[in-house]
C-alpha cells in the first residue's frame, strides 16, 4: 500500500515537471537543422526515394552498425543463457488446422518480407521491418509444429555472414571514395527504379538477414529449451 502511494507520488511529480517544460510550445511550421538538410538534398545525395532508408543506411550507417551490434549482444545473451540453463517443459502438439496453416503460409510471408527488404528505397520498409516479417514466418513454423529445430549452426553462420557483408560494403566505400559506408560506389541510377541508390539495397539485404536470423535464433533457443527434459 505504501509502495503504491510512493510510486503514484513520484509519477505525479514527474508529470508536473514534464508538463511545465512543454507548456509554452506552439505547433512548429518549419523543420530545423539537419532534418531540413536531409529533406532538401537527400534524393540527390543518395539516390534513394525513401528518405528514412537513406538516413538509416547512408547518412547514419555507422550508427546502424552500432545498433546492429547492440541487437547482436542482446540476442547472444538470450541464446547463451538458454543454452547453459535449459528450462524444461513439454508442449502439447498443435491441432491439425494449425499444423496445416503453418505448413502453407510461411512461404508467402517470407516472400512478402523479401519484397519489403528489397523495395526499402522505394516504398515503406527496409532491413529492420523486413527482417521482422521474415522472423515472424519462422515463428509461425515453430507455433505450428512440436519438434525441436536443429539448424542453429546454419542460423548463426547466416548471422555472421550478414554482419561481415555489412562491414565489407562499408570498407568498399572507404577504399574507393574515402568515406566509410558511402553508398555511391556503384552509380546511383535514376531515383524511383528498383536498381538505383547505389548499394543501399545490398546493405538492406544484409541488415534484413541479420535481424531475421537473430530474432529466429531467440525463438529457436526458447523452443529448444522447452523440448528438453
Amino acid at each position: 500500500m505504501i509502495r503504491t502511494i510512493v510510486g503514484l507520488a513520484i509519477v505525479l511529480v514527474l508529470a508536473a515537471i514534464l508538463i511545465t517544460v512543454v507548456d509554452d510550445y506552439t505547433v512548429p511550421s518549419a523543420l530545423s537543422g539537419v532534418g531540413e538538410l536531409y529533406t532538401q538534398t537527400g534524393v540527390e545525395d543518395t539516390g534513394s526515394v525513401n528518405l528514412v532508408t537513406a538516413v538509416v543506411v547512408a547518412y547514419r550507417g555507422l550508427d546502424t552498425l552500432g545498433e546492429v551490434v547492440v541487437l547482436f549482444s542482446a540476442s547472444t545473451a538470450v541464446v547463451l543463457i538458454l543454452t547453459l540453463i535449459p528450462i524444461g517443459a513439454n508442449p502439447t502438439p498443435p491441432s491439425s488446422i494449425v499444423a496445416f496453416t503453418a505448413g502453407i503460409l510461411p512461404g508467402a510471408i517470407i516472400l512478402f518480407g523479401i519484397y519489403i527488404i528489397t523495395h526499402g528505397h522505394l516504398s515503406p520498409g527496409g532491413g529492420f521491418p523486413g527482417g521482422a516479417v521474415v522472423a515472424s514466418a519462422f515463428l509461425l513454423v515453430m507455433l505450428g509444429s512440436n519438434t525441436i529445430p536443429d539448424k542453429s549452426k546454419f542460423l548463426s553462420s547466416i548471422e555472421s555472414l550478414a554482419g561481415l557483408t555489412f562491414g565489407l560494403l562499408g570498407f568498399w566505400g572507404m577504399f574507393t571514395l574515402g568515406q566509410f559506408l558511402n553508398n555511391l560506389v556503384i552509380p546511383a541510377g535514376s531515383p524511383g527504379r528498383i536498381i538505383s541508390a547505389g548499394i543501399i539495397p545490398l546493405i538492406s539485404l544484409a541488415i534484413g538477414a541479420k535481424v531475421a536470423s537473430e530474432l529466429s535464433g531467440i525463438f529457436s533457443s526458447y523452443r529448444k529449451a522447452g523440448g528438453e527434459e
Partner: peptide
C-alpha cells in the same frame, strides 16, 4: 511515419506477444 508503423505492427502484433 509508415516505416515505423510497419515495424511496430510486425513486432508488436506477433513477436512481442509470443515472447
Amino acid at each position: 511515419a509508415p516505416d515505423v508503423a510497419i515495424t511496430e505492427a510486425s513486432i508488436g502484433a506477433a513477436i512481442s506477444t509470443v515472447i
